[in-house]
Simulated assay, not measured.
Amino acid sequence: MSATKAVTINDVARAAGVSRQTVTRALNNMPEVSAATRERVVAAAGALNYRPNRAAQGLVRGRETTVGLVVSDLRNPYYPELASELTRKAGLRGWSVVLCDLGSDVDVARRRLDAVAGRVDAMVGHLLAAGEWRGALANTPTVVLDGPLDSEKHAVIAIDYEPGIRAAVDHLRATGHSHIAMVDAGRTPSIRRQIYRRLLREYGLHWSPDSELVAPDTNDGGVRAAARLREQDPEADAVLAFNDVLAVGMLKGFARAHVSVPGDIAVVGIDGLDIGTLVTPELTSIAIDTAKLADTAIELVAALLDGVAPPDERLHRIVTHTLTVRESA
C-alpha cells in the first residue's frame, strides 16, 4: 500500500477472505458472524492498520457523528465564537459537538482530553499538536487548528498571519504612524511578534526592546500593558496587540490615563472578535473568518471519517487574516 493511500474496507475483506458486509458486521460486533470469522477480520484490519469510516459506523450503530472541539480557555471570547460556528456547520451535516475546555492545569487537561476522545468520532482544536496530547489523540481522527503543515499524524489548518499583519503595518504607515510597539502574550516570541519584527526591519521603522511588552492575554492584562507602555516607550504612536482581548483592555487602560485613541496612539488587535464593535472607539483588528475556519475544519473531519489518512496533502489547508479598519487606528 502507498503511504498516502487509505486502506479501505474492501482491502480488509480481501485479506480476510470475506465480503465487505461481513467486515462491517464483524467490526461492529453485529450478529450472524462467527467468533472465528470475527477474529480473522479483526486480525486483518489490525495488520493493514485499517481506520474505519467513523461516519458509516455511526449509521450502522444508529447514532449521530460526534465531534470534539478542544479549546484552551473558554473565557477568551474567540473560543465561544469558534464553537458557535463549528456547532452550526456540524449541525448542517446532522452531527453534534462536544466541547472540551483544557484549562491551565496539564494533568486536568489530559484527563479531560482522554475522556472526550473516548466519546467522539473526531477531534478539532488548538494546542493538539503539543507532545503531551499525542497519546490521547493516537486513535482519534484529529484536525489541528493553527498547527504546522508538516504534520504526518493529523489534518492541519495552518494560519498565515503575515498578510494581515502586513496590511495593518501598511495602514499605520499610511496614516502617519512610524513608531509601532507590540504587546505579546508570552515571553517566547510568538509567530505574530516574529512577523512584526521582520516587517519593521523591512520597512526601516523604529524598533527597540522597549517597544515590546509581554502581558497575559486577558482584559486586565491589556489595562496594565497600556500603563506600562506609556512608561516604557512613551514615543510609541501605535501598538499591535497579540489579540483583541488584550487590545480591548488597552483601550480601557488608555482611557483611564486620558490618552486619546487614535489621536495619541493607535491600537490594533488580532482575531476580529465581535467585542471589538462593542467598545469606544471601535477596535481595528486583523480578523480571521471563524465561519470559514469552522467550515474548513468540518470538511477535513468529513475527509478523515471517509478514510483519507495523513499525511495526504488534501488534509492540509491554510487560512489568512484580513484587516478590518474601524475607529482605533
Rank of each mutant, 00 (worst) to 15 (best):
N219R: 09
C100L: 11
A241V: 04
A174E: 14
V325H: 00
R20T: 15
A291T: 13
P209G: 10
T65R: 08
H154Y: 15
A47M: 08
H126P: 00
V120Y: 07
V325R: 01
R326C: 04
I195Q: 02
E299R: 10
V301G: 04
V71N: 02
R112V: 13
R224N: 07
E202R: 13
E81Y: 00
P52E: 00
S260L: 02
L278D: 04
D237M: 03
V261Y: 02
L283P: 13
D150T: 13
E39W: 10
E327G: 01
E81S: 10
E299T: 12
P189V: 14
K252G: 14
V223E: 12
D170S: 08
T24P: 07
D150V: 11
V67D: 10
S34E: 12
V98I: 14
A225H: 09
P234A: 05
V308W: 04
H206G: 11
E162K: 01
A90E: 01
Y196S: 08
R51T: 09
R112D: 06
Q21N: 14
S285M: 10
P234S: 05
P141K: 14
G204K: 03
R38E: 03
P77E: 05
H316Q: 13
E299M: 06
A117G: 05
D312E: 14
R112T: 11
D274E: 12
L69T: 06
D184H: 04
G307D: 02
I318T: 15
R173W: 03
A109D: 05
F254C: 05
G17A: 10
I265C: 01
R166F: 04
A16T: 15
R88S: 07
L240W: 01
P141T: 09
V7Y: 03
M250E: 12
G125M: 07
G272Q: 06
G118N: 05
V106Q: 09
S260I: 00
T296S: 14
E212A: 14
K89R: 09
Y203V: 06
G176S: 11
L283D: 05
R224G: 00
L229I: 08
A155N: 05
V169Q: 00
R25I: 10
N53Y: 00
H126N: 04
V120R: 13
E282Q: 15
T142E: 01
Y79M: 05
V41L: 11
A55I: 02
I180T: 07
L82F: 15
E162T: 06
I275G: 01
Y196R: 08
S2E: 08
H154W: 08
A83S: 14
G91Q: 08
L59S: 04
R228T: 13
G135A: 02
V248G: 01
K292N: 03
L293P: 04
Q232L: 04
E32D: 15
A158F: 05
V279H: 03
N243V: 07
V120I: 10
V7P: 04
V12L: 13
V70G: 01
E282C: 11
P310W: 09
L48A: 03
R192A: 11
V116P: 06
H154K: 03
E81V: 13
V60M: 02
E231P: 03
A130S: 07
V143Q: 02
R166S: 05
L145R: 03
A138F: 00
A45L: 07
A26N: 07
D160H: 02
P52I: 04
Q57T: 06
I157F: 01
A287N: 08
S2Q: 10
I286R: 07
I286A: 12
D107N: 11
A294L: 07
M250D: 12
V319W: 00
